[in-house]
């Protein structure tokens, strides 16, 4: 395992910050392993996106604008990455720890006989061996797992865990030949995007999350969104709020929702149940606004303000906006 391959997840050429975090880390890893760092971008928009990815310190970018990636569920992506891995040779493959990233990682692991480091927040390299540091059990445990010597290894990388820094000697771009033979099994009939244009929760530097204390769907728009926008962040929610139908499940944070690690997490009307805590406990600073001084969230907040969210949040938004002006 000498080289490093970054799988670029994107939607018609639009990608997320984790791509650049991985591209930056790939260089460090490849240098430590004495190999090269490459990226694989496939599907409509790949070539355009490659121009952006090339500004990161990679040796090569492999692309194919193959429209099949939008027509068949993941099957073509698995084939392409497998083909790239076999062409590039023994390598560590970095994949974002997202819904489809996990699917891809599992499928490649079976095809390449590779081990998986899941939800990796740090890599350690010693004598050519790669070890992956990952929080487990909702962050209650931090494990270090080494990938045993093998041709291929896979890591699903947690967004927001690594720094992104452009730069480096321009990577070469080349077309990745379409792998032939295998029929694709699952056809995408319809693909709908919801809540587009909003910052992705997993990579927002600030998350303002609301819970049952908000009492309905409107305050998420009228109260939380203005504060989140003023702070340059995104809106999230507890499961109680998602279950009530006030926000889509894609905003849910916690054990059965997303894991977020912003610099600042503001919990508004959220009691701080263990299942919520595990999705946000690794945030930088945690601030809570709650009517109840005895709410569990007090135990793991840096600051709990006891009071009515409906009165506090608009004032806070005003203060933040005034400070920016």
């Amino acid at each position: 395992m000498k080289n490093v391959i970054v799988y670029v997840e994107h939607r018609r050429g639009e990608t997320r910050k984790v791509t650049f975090e991985m591209a930056t880390e790939a260089r460090t890893l490849a240098d430590a392993l004495g190999g090269q760092a490459h990226a694989v971008i496939v599907g409509p928009g790949a070539t355009t996106l490659a121009e952006q990815v090339k500004t990161y310190p990679l040796n090569g970018v492999y692309v194919n604008d193959d429209p099949d990636l939008d027509t068949y569920l993941l099957d073509p992506a698995v084939d392409y990455v497998e083909a790239a891995a076999r062409a590039i040779g023994p390598s560590l493959i970095l994949i974002p720890n997202t819904l489809s990233g996990r699917d891809l990682a599992g499928r490649l692991a079976a095809r390449l006989g590779a081990g998986i480091g899941a939800d990796v927040t740090e890599f350690k390299i010693e004598n050519g061996t790669v070890a992956c540091v990952s929080p487990k059990m909702g962050g209650a445990l931090i494990t270090t797992c080494a990938i045993k010597p093998a041709e291929y290894g896979i890591a699903t990388v947690r967004p927001n865990a690594f720094a992104a820094a452009a730069g480096g000697a321009g990577a070469t771009m080349q077309t990745l030949e379409k792998p032939s033979g295998k029929p694709y099994a699952a056809v995408i009939e319809e693909d709908v995007e919801e809540g587009s244009g909003e910052l992705a929760l997993e990579e927002a530097p600030v998350v303002v999350a609301g819970g049952r204390g908000l009492g309905g769907p409107e305050p998420f728009d009228t109260l939380l969104k203005p504060l989140a926008h003023a702070l340059g962040g995104a809106v999230g929610a507890s499961r109680a709020a998602a279950d009530a139908g006030w926000v889509p499940y894609s905003l849910q944070i916690g054990q059965t929702g997303k894991t977020v690690t912003p610099n600042l997490y503001i919990a508004v009307g959220i009691s701080g149940a263990i299942q919520h805590k595990v999705g946000m406990r690794s945030s930088g600073a945690i601030v809570a606004i709650n009517k109840d001084a005895a709410a569990a969230i007090a135990e793991f907040s840096d600051l709990l303000v006891v009071g009515d969210a409906f009165k506090i949040v608009p004032e806070l938004t005003r203060l933040v906006e005034a400070a920016k002006a």
Binding site: R11, L73, T98, L99, S100, A186, V187, I188, E189, E190, D191, V192, E193, E194, G195, S196, A200, S250
Partner: peptide
């Protein structure tokens, strides 16, 4: 999906 839904 991470950003919406699909029919497959």
């Amino acid at each position: 999906t991470d950003s919406g839904y699909q029919t497959v």
